[in-house]
Computed example of a mutant assay.
Amino acid sequence: MTDAENPPPSQGDAAEPRSTDAGGPASPQEAPPTHGVGPWPGGADAWPDDPRYDRDLLENGDTRNVVDEYRYWSMDAIVADLDAKRHPFHVAIENWQHDLNIGSIVRSANAFLAAEVHIVGKRRWNRRGAMVTDRYQHVRHHEDVAAFAAWAREAGLPVIAVDNVEGSVPVDRADLPEACVLLFGQEGPGLSPEAIEAATGVVEITQYGSTRSINAASAAAVIMYEWCRRWA
């Protein structure tokens, strides 16, 4: 058996040459690599003796969107490992208009290791932007803001709303509790009045240009990074 702590490094799969601005095909060196690993070198006799590893992935390769540490691990093993070290902040998103940003926010929540994601409103949400990361992220649904607020109170978690409304405080100068729920609104209308009312505090991202707001998914990533900068 090989050392389970040292799987082979990621390698780029062959990619078709892409078109360039000049109209001709790009050289193989310019083609963007796809990330993944092939079958575990050495065949079945060399497979690591570790229950976290998935035999199908060892045999056929692993092209999932996971960091190298989790190559060849089963999904259940990855989730269990993440659960052992998740951060104490949660992410909540209002979902009244089937916002396409929700998937991207879920992906960022996975990247920043949020404890859980809460979908407030419509149960169905667009998963395309999540890039399958929702399989590794706990997602909970709340029928409306009242149900979500009741859950937060029961859990003892302050709700920090994110919106550039009157009275909001720049996040870099605001109190951002270690254990909390970061609440985001829809692209365009932002948070509902009910959500603002349910929040313990409201923060905003300082901007310097002419636009009134930035993309909801981008804003969520900025706020999660700010939390990690302080607490992770």
Rank of each mutant, 00 (worst) to 15 (best):
I119K: 00
I160K: 00
A80V: 03
F112A: 05
H142K: 11
R64W: 12
V139W: 01
L157A: 15
L58K: 06
R123F: 04
D81M: 02
N126W: 03
A109R: 06
N95K: 04
V79K: 06
R123Q: 15
E59I: 00
V91H: 07
G156C: 10
A146M: 09
A115W: 09
D134Y: 09
L58H: 04
H118M: 03
D83M: 02
K122N: 11
N65Y: 09
E143H: 14
R64L: 11
N164V: 01
H118R: 04
A77I: 08
G156E: 06
V145Q: 03
G129H: 10
D62P: 03
Q137E: 11
V159R: 01
D99F: 03
V79F: 02
T133L: 11
F148C: 10
W125I: 00
D134P: 00
G156Q: 08
V67D: 14
V139H: 01
D81Q: 10
D76S: 14
V106G: 05
N65L: 13
W125K: 00
N65A: 14
A146K: 12
W151G: 07
V66Q: 13
H87E: 11
Q137G: 03
P158I: 10
V139F: 05
A77C: 06
V106E: 06
M75T: 13
A77S: 15
W151D: 13
G167W: 01
E154K: 14
R128Y: 15
A147G: 14
A155T: 10
Q137A: 05
E154A: 15
L57D: 08
R64E: 15
R64H: 14
A150V: 07
E94Y: 01
V132E: 14
Y136Q: 14
H138M: 11
L113E: 10
A155F: 06
K122M: 06
E59R: 13
H87W: 06
H98K: 11
A109T: 05
Y72Q: 04
E143W: 04
I102R: 00
L113D: 12
G121R: 03
E116K: 15
I119H: 00
A147Y: 09
E154C: 08
Q97T: 12
A109H: 07
A152D: 00
D134H: 13
A80T: 07
L100T: 13
D62T: 02
R135G: 13
V66W: 11
L100C: 07
P88C: 09
D56P: 00
R135F: 12
V91L: 13
Y70W: 15
V66T: 15
W73A: 01
E143T: 15
V139C: 05
I105E: 02
H87A: 11
V117M: 04
N95L: 03
I93M: 15
W96S: 06
A109Q: 05
D56N: 11
E116W: 02
H118A: 04
N126P: 02
V117S: 05
G103M: 07
E154Q: 15
S168F: 01
V165W: 00
N164Q: 07
F89A: 13
D81F: 00
W125P: 00
G61E: 05
G61V: 00
H90C: 12
N164W: 01
S74R: 07
G61F: 03
D83G: 01
H87D: 11
L157Q: 12
I105N: 04
D68N: 12
P88T: 10
Q137P: 01
D81Y: 02
L157R: 15
D144T: 07
N101F: 05
E154H: 13
A111M: 06
E166D: 09
